[in-house]
Amino acid sequence: MTAAFSISGLCFTYPDALQPAIHQVDLDIPEGAAMALLGPNGAGKSTLMDLILRWKKPDAGTIRLMDRPLADHSAAELGRLMALVPQEEQSQFAFSVVDYVLFGRAPRLGALGLPSRGDVAVSYQALEEVGLSPLAERSVMSLSGGEHQLLLLARAIAQQTPILLLDEPTSALDPANTANVVAILKRLHRRGATLLFTTHDPSLAAELASHVALLQGGSLLAEGPTGEVMTGERLSALYQTPLHTLRHNGRLLVFRSA
């Protein structure tokens, strides 16, 4: 299997910080994988995501995207290869839902191009995919938290990229909305999308990820297929609290000791 991302010797330290946020990370993310970057708060998950997104520049090390150095891709090329679903995003202006999803088409238009009817149709399909099409003409400012997360997901889907980066995709959602988002992500993964998501919730990683990378203090603790990497021992060491795993009806469950 070819690698969507191939990361080697990656280091990054924030200005004025004493400790590196990312230290000597080597990681291959296979094409078509659903990989969770799992770790406690402050482990370096979001920083690693930003480096992969090329939003931050590493101090040392390399990232290859689809077998080419990340730095060699143009901004528009990056936008055609990977889409971002941020953890939160607020608009100060009352865009309609469909107009907001249409923003995902930007990397496919020329430098100063305008979206066509075809782009509008793709945006509606994306809204259909996440179940938001009845709200297409509503203002994004009137959406609930769950609907807003689906909106960001729809924009990423409209971007039609082979890779989706998701920053804590369910951290602000109630159980029903979490189940909805997970179901959509599983569907996208089955269709061949490479998913890379950060989470501090081992249960989400166990449910959604085919591969897991465990991050602690900016270093990689372990990585590989979910079933092999997510053991009670490793998770307990990662979160500094006793955690156990159990396989039930083919599903991996994570729970805390009573």
Binding site: D50, G79, L84, E89, A106, P107
Partner: peptide, 9 residues
């Protein structure tokens, strides 16, 4: 960060 992710600089 979002603008960057949709191909803007």
């Amino acid at each position: 960060r979002t603008a960057h992710s949709v191909g803007m600089i």
